[in-house]
Design a binder for these strands. Structure first.
Lengths: 214, 214
DNA sequence: TAGATTGTTAATCGATTAACAATC
DNA sequence: TAGATTGTTAATCGATTAACAATC
């Protein structure tokens, strides 16, 4: 098996392929060519073949790709042929919303604990879980083998909580707080940067409105 | 003023500069060099100067950049020297969470209406607003001059709602539904792709765990 | 003036696209 | 076999980094 290091740009596209192929399966599509994927997804056929060949020879000359096979392979590459144990820290509006986000659950990200420090929120039921106080965090991480934390605190608390999450041995953080976390270990942090998306909209609307002027 | 078309990669970094400069202002930093920004943000000094020079000559040889000035300039470039009129469609957990996200409000994105179709939700109060039925959508968009919609429906409803949003003359959509929207006009859509972030974490955790094997 | 740091041109690097031989 | 489509090498394009003259 080849093992050059895969370009970041390719990794960013993998979830899109995964999503697209799932749709194809739902529509009972059995085989598909890079050309067909190209037309549906808007990448070039060449790029699609290049991307996939970073991981193996999934296709067949003269035939194309078997949709089920390709989907299974990409799932495996993405590491979602297993279940992850997840905790949410911060059970405010956002934490509650995320806990109800079925899409995550469906792909094997199982929420096993929810934490907060606010006495008005601790003890509340969210789905089948009861919000626990952060006092119990380390204990519960151990008990449930928590691997990933969804960080849904406010901006001010985020850094301190992240460090505690790191120290508890959690491997990954999905950070919803609008702040860059500084970590000591190689814990993997992914930022949502919701504000950046909004600023991007703002930028593009502005550019358009000024294009009509000068 | 120069007006070549600005690389996408640069535009994606603008919000990060904006955020960083705001922090510097809060810490009463008056001037800063590309070298200092470089060290704090982890880009090269060269890249920072290249990025900024897409929009004008904001610095001064031998001095660097005035933090306040640069922040004001980037704000203007991002189009956030004005207030935007925003509506939320979908007042479930996510819509409610987003409506409470003060960060958006603080940068001038003002939520003026919230909509849903669920009879259990319509009429409910969220902050100072009452959730309205989608029947009133077009009327309210007109009344409040809505420019941006936060799309917080489920995946199934997203496409149909997006088309209605488009037809009502809204200019931009921040899409929280895990689906690619197909638009007819040049309405600007930004996708949050929360799942993609989670899959990215999964991928990196998997790569690390298999590095120890082979 | 001397020192610092920008703005900008040129060099390098990485990612995308084109082309085509291999092969199902 | 003939047609289709992959896997892969080579060419192009775009973005990042290095270097340095301009200048505050």
């Amino acid at each position: 098996m080849k093992k050059k290091n895969v370009p970041k740009a390719v990794i960013k596209r993998l979830p899109k392929y995964h999503r697209f192929l799932k749709e194809q399966i739902n529509q009972d599509v059995v085989r598909i060519s890079s050309r067909q994927i190209s037309q549906a997804m808007g990448f070039t056929a060449s790029q699609i073949r290049q991307d996939l060949n970073n991981f193996g020879d999934f296709g067949q000359q003269g035939y194309g790709y078997n949709v089920e096979d390709l989907y299974a392979n990409i799932s495996k590459i993405l590491g979602i042929n297993k279940t992850y144990s997840v905790a949410i820290v911060g059970a405010g509006n956002l934490g509650t919303a995320i806990s109800n986000y079925t899409q995550f659950d469906r792909l094997g990200f199982k929420i096993n604990a929810i934490f907060d420090v606010n006495p008005c929120i601790v003890g509340k039921s969210i789905g089948l879980l009861e919000v626990q106080h952060m006092d119990k965090f380390e204990e519960e991480v151990e008990k449930h083998g928590i691997e990933i934390v969804y960080l849904c605190t406010n901006m001010e608390a985020a850094q301190a909580v992240a460090e505690r999450v790191e120290n508890a041995g959690v491997k990954g953080i999905l950070n919803f707080a609008p702040t860059d976390l500084v970590m000591k270990t190689d814990i993997y942090v992914e930022n949502t940067y919701l504000i950046d998306k909004l600023l991007s909209i703002s930028y593009h609307l502005k550019v358009r409105s000024t294009e009509n002027d000068g």
